[in-house]
Structure formats: C-alpha cells, structure tokens
Computed example of a mutant assay.
Amino acid sequence: QLGRCRSVKEFEKLNRIGEGTYGIVYRARDTLTDETVALKKVRMDNEKDGMPISSLREITLLLQLRHPNIVELKEVVVGNHLESIFLVMGYCEQDLASLLENMQTPFSEAQVKCIILQVLKGLQYLHENYVIHRDLKVSNLLMTDKGCVKIADFGLARTYGMPPKPMTPKVVTLWYRAPELLLGMTTQTTSIDMWAMGCILAELQPHKPLLPGTSEIHQIDLIVQLLGTPNENIWPGFSKLPLVSQYTLRKQPY
C-alpha cells in the first residue's frame, strides 16, 4: 500500500545503470541499511489513470516470486508525487549483454554451463508457478560479482493457465522470438521462453547472436536456413498458423 511506502529520499542515487522495458534504473544506496540496491523508476509517460498496467503486473509478479536466480523486488518507494514510483531491487554488478561486449576472451564451456544452469533453474521456478517471462535475452540476465545469474525485467511477463488465453504475439525481442510468434500464434506457453533460452545458449560461446534478424520476415528466413522448412509432419498445426499464408518460405531440407 502506497501509504506505508518509504520515501525515495531515503536512497542516495549513485549513478544511472540502464533502462528496462518500462523504466530507468539507478544504482543507489539505502541510507538506513547502507545496502547498495537497484532503483527502478516506473515510467509514467502519458498515464492519466495512474500506474501503467505493465508496471502493476511486474510488481505483483515480483512480490510473489522468490528464487536465487530471479531478481528480488525488495520494496516499492515513492517520490514527491504519487506519479513518482520506484522499485527497490537487488543490485547486480552487470548484465550478460555488457559482459559479452567487453570480454577479451570468450566464456569457457564450463562457464557457459554454469550460466545456463542458473537461468534454467530460475526459469523452471517461473514455469512451475505458471509465469512466462516473454522477454528473455542476454541484456535481461544479470550477474553479481560472485557469479550468481538472475533473470530480470518482468515488464512483459504473464501468468498462464490451461487452456492458454490469447496474448499479443508482438513480444520477445526479435532475435529471440519463437517461430510460432513470428507466424502469429496468440496462445503462448512456456515454449517461447525455451526457444529464447536456446538462442541465448548459442550466443554465449561465440559472443554473437544466433539469429540476428533485421525484420520479421528476415528472422523467419534465418530460422528456416538453420533448421529447415517446417511442415505438418515435423510441426503439427503449422499450416493453420495465422500468418503462414503471407510468407513464401525457402525450400530448405529439414
């Protein structure tokens, strides 16, 4: 409840460290505990009716989720106005995207295994609790200076059930987007996170994205080049996907 929230003035902003799906992130010091935290300012652009639904979803989910490989939401604090809301989160020294960009030597096979195992443990916990992240990518995987990897940025995450409810397919950053999303499927399951995980695994050792598409049609073409042209035998229901008729897929052996 906002009436019980602490003030953001109790936190000393140290520096800006990035920008998530729905807000700017700062490194800050909690003046009461002297702890270093991440302070995420909730973006309120053009919001006449209060907090964006995406931020409410993220807060609600993160308050329920507790796992060593998922970023921790410690509390919600407020600024001078009710429109100024911040999430206080556990601080991680870097994200995997920056790490990949700045490393002189590639990750070893053992390091890749260690990173992927941690992400899979976090993902297993999410899926067991009926949550799909829907935006897994290297920039949303954070790492502490002790090597603990945490899944972050739950702005696009959703809970799911059976049967799955329709959701927008325009989620997941293009390079990590599953083929069923590119072809217009609106019912989403844990499989879209698992596809993104495969793309992340393939990116960690060579330090370059597996499928760096520049458009949706290019992304589909890269997938077909790599895995072959899908058909009903290997992908039951493929021909009924909403956008299949709009694309002419190259003939590539499976």
Score class of each variant (00 low, 15 high):
Gly90Tyr: 10
Ile192Leu: 14
Val71Glu: 01
Thr248Ala: 14
Tyr91Cys: 01
Gly79Ile: 06
Leu174Lys: 03
His67Glu: 09
Ala178His: 03
Glu180Ser: 03
Thr33Leu: 12
Lys48Trp: 11
Lys251Met: 09
Thr21Pro: 02
Val42Lys: 00
Leu210Thr: 05
Met167Asn: 05
Leu14Arg: 14
Gly147Pro: 05
Asp49Ala: 09
Thr31Ser: 12
Ile132Ser: 02
Ile217Gly: 03
Met89Gln: 07
Leu126Thr: 04
Phe107Thr: 08
Glu75Pro: 01
Ser239Cys: 11
Leu82Tyr: 13
Ala196Cys: 13
Arg177Tyr: 02
Ile220Met: 15
Tyr247Arg: 11
Pro163Val: 12
Leu62Lys: 03
Pro106Gln: 13
Gln104Asp: 14
Val78Ser: 03
Arg177His: 05
Lys9Ile: 14
Arg29Ile: 03
Thr186Met: 08
Lys121Ala: 12
Gln104Lys: 12
Ala110Gly: 09
Val119Thr: 09
Ala178Asp: 03
Pro166Val: 08
Gln94Lys: 11
Lys74Ile: 07
Leu117Phe: 12
Ala38Ile: 05
Ser191Asp: 04
Leu227Lys: 15
Tyr130His: 09
Asp145Gly: 10
Gly228Thr: 02
Lys48His: 15
Lys48Asp: 15
Val37Glu: 00
Leu120Gln: 07
Gln219Leu: 05
Leu210Asn: 02
Leu241Gln: 06
Leu204Glu: 01
Glu93Arg: 09
Arg177Pro: 01
Leu62Gln: 01
Glu12Cys: 10
Gly18Phe: 13
Glu203Gln: 12
Asp30Trp: 05
Pro164Glu: 03
Tyr125His: 14
Ile59Phe: 00
Lys146Ala: 11
Val37Gln: 01
Glu109Trp: 11
Ala157Pro: 02
Arg27Leu: 13
Pro253Trp: 06
Thr173Ile: 14
Ala28Val: 02
Ser54Val: 13
Ser54Ile: 08
Asp95Gln: 04
Met44Pro: 01
Leu117Ser: 07
Asp221Gln: 09
Ile234Ala: 11
Leu222Gly: 09
Arg6Glu: 08
Arg16His: 08
Leu63Ser: 08
Ile151His: 01
Lys150Gly: 00
Val77Gln: 00
Asn80Lys: 10
Asn231Leu: 06
Asn233Trp: 14
Thr159Asn: 08
Trp235Val: 02
Leu156Cys: 09
Leu126Asn: 01
Lys170Glu: 14
Arg250Asp: 11
Arg177Gln: 07
Ile17Leu: 12
Ile132Asp: 00
Ile151Ala: 04
Asp30Phe: 06
Thr229His: 06
Thr173Leu: 06
Cys92Ala: 14
Ala157Ile: 00
Cys148Arg: 06
Trp175His: 04
Phe154His: 04
Gly213Phe: 04
Ile234Cys: 10
Leu201Ser: 09
Thr190Met: 14
Asn69Tyr: 05
His133Glu: 13
Ile115Ala: 01
Gln124Cys: 15
Gln64Lys: 14
Pro206Tyr: 10
Gln124Val: 08
Gly155Glu: 02
Ile217Asn: 05
Arg43Trp: 03
Ile200His: 02
Leu32Ser: 11
